[in-house]
Structure formats: structure tokens, C-alpha cells
């Protein structure tokens, strides 16, 4: 599959702050690509640069295998940070301006308003909209050009739980039409629920990237105790080939096993050494703790 977006060594410096440091990622066609990271990690900066509103300090990027131009922009629908509209115009009048800028037929406007649930309020001024409605209008504007790629920066910001569910469903529906979606979010479960690929950013540095399933491969943690002293257990555990990590934690031994390893195998291994474990607990690693682990794994 071709890459929709190819980012090479992108950096951005604001004075003393390195907002983005040598970011290199590729977004495959047809993927839902999550850009995950805490606030201030460089997600919006990255999207701002590839959307041509922020000048990069270094690095390059290509859309659809070519440098960004007015014609590549019209194949992209994007919502960056906040919904940006004229407050004194109605939702519909605002979309007419968007349509003109994108050179899209106005006939698409009613359908888009319907899709984002604003058909009833299309004649109301933008300044009277709730935060959720503003956000939905922005998503509508992004959809207006029937883009091949949708870039959404925190699209569920300010939405109520129902709105969040709707937007996520909308994203999945749009992706089902074969479109590529690039989604920035600081919400883990949003990325997990929606995305196929992801990149994790922290302080402008890329911490991990790849298909969600491979990054989030749940290496379960196993806690064991009893049958022998902690030191003895530790010594044995370290000799076992399928144990990738072993460390004492709170009078217990915390083990990480290689993927596809069954915990009963562990039990059997200890038993063959003449130790009957008093306790063996398998704990699924939560996505949250994995995320924290990834962003804490500072090489510095």
C-alpha cells in the first residue's frame, strides 16, 4: 500500500522549546492513524506543519507522494485545534465560504449538515452554537470536499459522551469507505477504539509507532510468590528462556513473559525445579500503564 503521508525528520523549535524533534512517520493508505501523546507533546505542531500553517524548522513531508500544494490540500479535509469560523455568520453561510475555498459545489452542504446533525440549526449564527455543535460544524467542513484524507485534531474535544460516540462512529464509517484518517488525541481509549495504526509522541519525540495491535501487544504481567525465598525464585526465573523480565515488587516477583507463553508453563517450570508456587496471578497490563510505560521510556 502506498503512503498517504510521509514525514521525514520534521523538527520545530519555538525559541528555547523544541516542540518537535526529528519526527519520521509514514501513514499508510486506508489506515486510521492515531497520533497519541500528552498535551504539549507536539501533535498539533506536527499536524500544523503538514497542513501548511506552521513552518517547520527542519525536515520534509509529502502528501500522496508529492510536495504539498494547493491541489494536494483540496484532497485533504482537516480540523486543527479549534473550529475556526466567522461568529456572525450562520453555520450554513460559514460552510458556503469553506466550499468556495475548497472549490466544492454548494449542493454538498445540506448533506454534510445532515451527517453532522446540524441540519436543524443551519440558519443559526455560529456564535450561538454550543462547543459540541461548533466541533461538529468543523467536522462537517472537513468532510465538505469529500476528501481522501481526513485530519482530525482532538475531534471529540468538548463533546458530551453521546457526541463522542457519534463522532467515533462517524470516523469508523468514513474509514470504511476506504479513506485514510489521521487522528490526534491525548485519549488512549479513543486511539485504541478507533485506530489501526499509531505513533506515540512525548516532548516532541517519537516514542513508538506501528500497528496498534503490535504496540499494544499485551505482554501480560505475572506475579508469583511462595514456595521458596524471593531470591531463589528470582534466580530460577532469570534462567527461564520465556521470561523477558523479572523483578521483585512488594514481596512478590513480577515477571514479564514472552508473547504466546502460557502461565501454566511457568508453573510447570518451577515445579520441575522442586518449587510449588504459593501464588500465581496473571494481570492483564492495562492500556493506560502501557502508554505510561512508552512515554516514560526516556532514552535520555
Amino acid at each position: 500500500m502506498a503512503d498517504i503521508l510521509d514525514i521525514q525528520g520534521l523538527s520545530k523549535r519555538y525559541g528555547a522549546v523544541q516542540a518537535l524533534d526529528q519526527l519520521t512517520i509514514k501513514v499508510p493508505e486506508g489506515s486510521i492513524y492515531g497520533l497519541l501523546g500528552p498535551n504539549g507533546s507536539g501533535k498539533t505542531t506536527t499536524l500544523g506543519i503538514v497542513l501548511d500553517v506552521i513552518n517547520a524548522s527542519a525536515g520534509t513531508y509529502q502528501w500522496f507522494g508529492q510536495p504539498a500544494s494547493q491541489s494536494t490540500k483540496r484532497r485533504i479535509g482537516a480540523l486543527l485545534e479549534t473550529p475556526n469560523f466567522y461568529p456572525y455568520l450562520t453555520g450554513e453561510e460559514n460552510l458556503r465560504i469553506t466550499a468556495d475555498v475548497k472549490r466544492v459545489d454548494h449542493a454538498r452542504i445540506p448533506g454534510v449538515l445532515q451527517t453532522v446533525g446540524l441540519a436543524q440549526r443551519r440558519g443559526d449564527k455560529f456564535k450561538g452554537y454550543s462547543l459540541g455543535m461548533k466541533q461538529r460544524l468543523a467536522i462537517g467542513a472537513a468532510l465538505l470536499g469529500d476528501p481522501e484524507v481526513l485530519v482530525l485534531d482532538e475531534p471529540t474535544n468538548g463533546l458530551d459522551p453521546e457526541g463522542i460516540a457519534e463522532v467515533r462512529q462517524l470516523i469508523i464509517d468514513i474509514a470504511a469507505q476506504g479513506k485514510t484518517i489521521i487522528l490526534a488525541s491525548h485519549l488512549l481509549d479513543e486511539v485504541e477504539k478507533v485506530c489501526t495504526h499509531m505513533a506515540v509522541l512525548r516532548s516532541g519525540k517519537l516514542k513508538a509507532q506501528g500497528p496498534v495491535s503490535s504496540i499494544m501487544a499485551a505482554n501480560d504481567l505475572v506475579f508469583i510468590s511462595g514456595g521458596a525465598s524471593l531470591d531463589q525464585l528470582l534466580q530460577i526465573a532469570r534462567t527461564l528462556p520465556f521470561v523477558t523480565d523479572a523483578r521483585p515488587v512488594n514481596q512478590q516477583l513480577q515477571l514479564s513473559l514472552q508473547p504466546e507463553t502460557d502461565s501454566s508453563e511457568l508453573n510447570r517450570a518451577f515445579f520441575s525445579q522442586g518449587i510449588a508456587l504459593g501464588q500465581l496471578v496473571v494481570r492483564k497490563k492495562s492500556l493506560e500503564s502501557q502508554f505510561l510505560e512508552i512515554i516514560k521510556a526516556d532514552s535520555v
Binding site: 501548511d52 490540500k73 483540496r74 482537516a78 486543527l80 475556526n84
Partner: peptide
Amino acid sequence: SDEYAFRTLRQQVIDGFS
């Protein structure tokens, strides 16, 4: 300056203006 306040310059560049 309205266009700056409403951040619409930014949006129009995103949407295809140079």
C-alpha cells in the same frame, strides 16, 4: 485582524488557499 481573531486565515490556508 478579525481573520486572525477568528483563526480563519489559518483555516483557509488549510482548506486550499495560498
